[in-house]
């Protein structure tokens, strides 16, 4: 119903693409350990405090990741009606996938989550992340000891009548 009315309204979509690319090369060294936080034993404090994709990968113990097309984003939307809940679904078809991480370029801390995939578990996870603004989102895959990255731009829209 709504689709019909709005089909005529064709507007260029602004994406956060260009900025996101620069972000890939933001130098490491921004790791700011947050000592005030208690933490679970195996929690990688450095990686979660890192800013930028490169810095995050480094903090996770990897080198510059290779770009990959072997990632399926499943039901991950291109436009999120609300940044507080953005569904992210990532399936890796890279053999020997060991972990899947979600990185949001423009969030205050880039790394959202690291999922470790043991043998017997599908290299596929769905969860929901917060996004402060439109941004590139990265799937960072560790497979057979190497890192791979795939990008998805997600636009976060404004809503509501009371601001």
């Amino acid at each position: 119903m709504t689709q019909e009315i709005n089909q005529g309204r064709r507007t260029a979509l602004k994406t956060g693409g260009a900025t996101a690319i620069f972000g890939l090369f933001v130098a490491a060294g921004l790791v700011r350990p947050n000592t005030a936080l208690a933490q679970a034993a195996g929690w990688n404090q450095g990686a979660f405090a890192a800013k930028g994709v490169d810095g995050t990968v480094k903090a996770l113990g990897g080198a510059t990741p290779a770009q990959t097309k072997d990632v399926n984003w499943g039901s991950t939307p291109e436009i999120a009606e609300n940044g507080a809940v953005v569904p992210v679904s990532i399936t890796s078809s890279i053999p020997k996938t060991e972990s899947i991480s979600i990185l949001v370029e423009k969030n205050p801390n880039t790394l959202s989550a690291v999922f470790t995939i043991p043998p017997g578990t599908d290299p596929s996870i769905s969860t929901r992340v917060k996004m402060g603004e439109s941004s590139a989102v990265y799937a960072l895959i560790k497979a057979d000891g190497k890192y791979y990255v795939a990008q998805r731009d997600i636009k976060v829209t404004l809503g509501g009548c009371g601001g």
């Binding site: 959202s112 690291v114 929901r128």
Partner: peptide, 8 residues
């Protein structure tokens, strides 16, 4: 899994 603050 390890999660940061930006999980919903």
């Amino acid at each position: 899994a390890q999660w940061g603050t930006s999980i919903s």
